[in-house]
Design a protein around this nucleic acid. Structure first.
Lengths: 341, 341
DNA sequence: AATAGTATTGCAAATGTTTTCATAAAATTA
DNA sequence: TAATTTTATGAAAACATTTGCAATACTATT
């Protein structure tokens, strides 16, 4: 079986081998109920014998869906995105779609270029991370009338469907946890917020919570750190080396918190007795730190799975309706935060 | 500009708008040097005005390359694969290709199914992780004459092009480091090796090194752990709770080593004085542990980048020639291993 | 000014499917 | 058994491109 043929195993070759017309072969794939079981069997055999694989490019050309969804992320190599991507991928796979992925390295112009590239492949939809994108991107989406989804952020006032969480709320919850423990002197270590609405909203939420209590954060206690444990550690070391040091640190994500924890420990500070450290995200690994990292859990897997399910529904539906799903946040109490003494 | 049109912006619409034939439009894209600069400008304007985006499905149907490469990984959500995927993605992007990705969860039958799915999309090549695949997979690749690449493993005796490292060598190097420090009582914690040649080879290499010195590892000191810090920690706790405990632990990857380190620390064992812990992989984060993890560095980014470059060359070349690239391993000495006292 | 050569462009066929419409065969009904 | 309905199949058009070939319009040469 499966002997090699001189290329060109198309639907016609199968048709000839099964002594039927190409139409019938096509129908066995697309509307099996319309073809006689006996013929179907003949065709199945021919398909197997020739090793025929359907050509979705040809189907796409005919106007059928391509069966691909494009996903554009800032980076793949990132604990939390990897988790979302995995869940999203599994989820759309179940619905019969394949994933075309591209990353832009937090550059919104590159994001635009990537989306264009995906559109050349006639993806049936584009999923993006966050709700902040270039004008060109929004125009493109609208002009091409391509279904687009925002993952990771939730907002009511957008015309994109979205599945995510309210990052302002996350920032606020984190800060309120610290406040409830009595902390009033809080340091903030966040990533660069330009082109990154997730980080920006978290910071805004945290500041809002402070503002309501008329608490301000002195500038020296506001640091910026990239997505890197060791660099976050370094930044934190600098911050904690000051004469006046905060009683708690709120970090924009768990990776930064991770670095901050190491920094505190390497300075011999007891966590949480001498300093509390709070993350946002609950990345894989945060639970395993010693002590475990207190953080706001963002359900990455749920978001990815839900996003995939809803988006494929949306794409395949005849009259798609906008959906905006807000996933729940949880404050996960572990060992890195404690009440002020 | 860019006003909306009632769909169907194809090459013909552009041709009409620019008052030329479709052929000429096609040529401006594919062989710009064949068309008069003035006409080219007219066409460019029309393209922009109509918001035309080329249709690769139609090109593919015509026999051109689809411009996509399929990548099938065990899982995306894995520090090390995420890094390889990112590098591979960037690398093929530079060559103008897009990445179709799929994961199989360490199930080689699912891997086969995923490859089939990618072939329906007429990917120009398939990249897989490792060299162990189902017979069906190998048959499929051969029968469809699809360029296939093995990433992550290196072996001379395979007919697939590959870019990776020699995992046996990695296992051996790790063990030899421990041996050189005087350790003779070594525990092994590895992942399940079925369908995972990377893990299996590392274990084989480690055992070979022991064998040459007539050292054996008692069964109770050989444990299996999944890719999870907390589970690895638990497994290690069990192992270290025995009355006789090894002086060193060799872990199949850094995540396991991570868990093992936590386990040792939570038992109050001083690392490396009372027990040495050795990883394999050098994942992001391993350097930041306290103490830093001694490990064998596998250059994931280099592998991904190189794989992308060579594979796209291979695919676009007229007479492609098999390549097999072995990337160098390095033993990274950090704080978790020490000489036997 | 005629000729040869070259640079542009258009026509039409080809690519691998799906689907509409028409037709033939089989099954049902009267 | 004839008429009617149902089921199964095939022929051909359509989808959006690319490209070989032919035709046309220039340019250079004599």
């Amino acid at each position: 079986m499966a002997r090699k043929q001189k290329h060109k195993v198309d639907i016609i070759a199968v048709a000839q081998a099964a002594k039927v017309s190409a139409s019938t072969v096509s129908r066995t794939f697309n509307h099996p109920e319309m073809v006689n079981p006996a013929t179907r069997k003949k065709i199945d055999r021919a398909v197997r014998r020739l090793g025929y694989i359907r050509n979705r490019a040809a189907q796409t050309m005919h106007g059928k869906r391509s069966g691909t969804i494009g996903l554009v992320v800032p980076t793949i190599n990132h604990a939390i995105f990897a988790e979302v991507i995995q869940a999203f991928s599994d989820s759309i796979d179940k619905a019969g779609f394949s994933l075309l992925i591209a990353s832009h390295g937090y550059d919104l112009d590159r994001e635009y270029a990537m989306i264009r590239k995906l559109l050349e492949h006639r993806v049936d939809g584009v999923a993006l991370i966050g709700l902040e994108h270039s004008d060109a991107t929004f125009r493109l989406i609208q002009q091409q009338e391509i279904p687009a989804l925002a993952i990771w952020n939730y907002s009511e006032d957008t015309d994109l469907p979205c599945v995510g969480t309210d990052n302002r709320q996350a920032g606020r919850m984190a800060m309120e946890h610290l406040l409830s423990l009595g902390h009033r002197e809080v340091g903030l270590i966040f990533p660069d917020t330009s082109g990154n609405d997730r980080a920006r909203h978290r910071l805004e939420g945290a500041l809002a919570a402070l503002n309501e209590r008329d608490i301000t954060v002195p500038d020296p206690w506001r640091s910026e750190a990239p997505y890197s444990i060791s660099q976050a550690k370094q930044v934190t070391l600098d911050l904690l080396a000051m004469s006046e040091r905060p009683t708690a640190l709120l970090c924009g994500n768990d990776v930064i918190a991770h670095g901050a924890l190491y920094a505190a420990q390497s300075l011999g500070l007891r966590v949480p007795d001498e300093i509390s450290i709070m993350g946002i995200g609950d990345f894989k690994g945060s639970v395993d730190l010693e002590p475990g990292l207190t953080t706001i859990r963002i359900p990455a897997e749920t978001i990815g799975t839900l996003a995939g399910e809803r988006f494929t529904d949306y794409i395949t539906s005849d009259e798609p309706e906008l959906f905006q799903i807000c996933c729940e946040l949880n404050c996960i109490l572990r060992g890195t935060t404690g009440a002020i003494s």
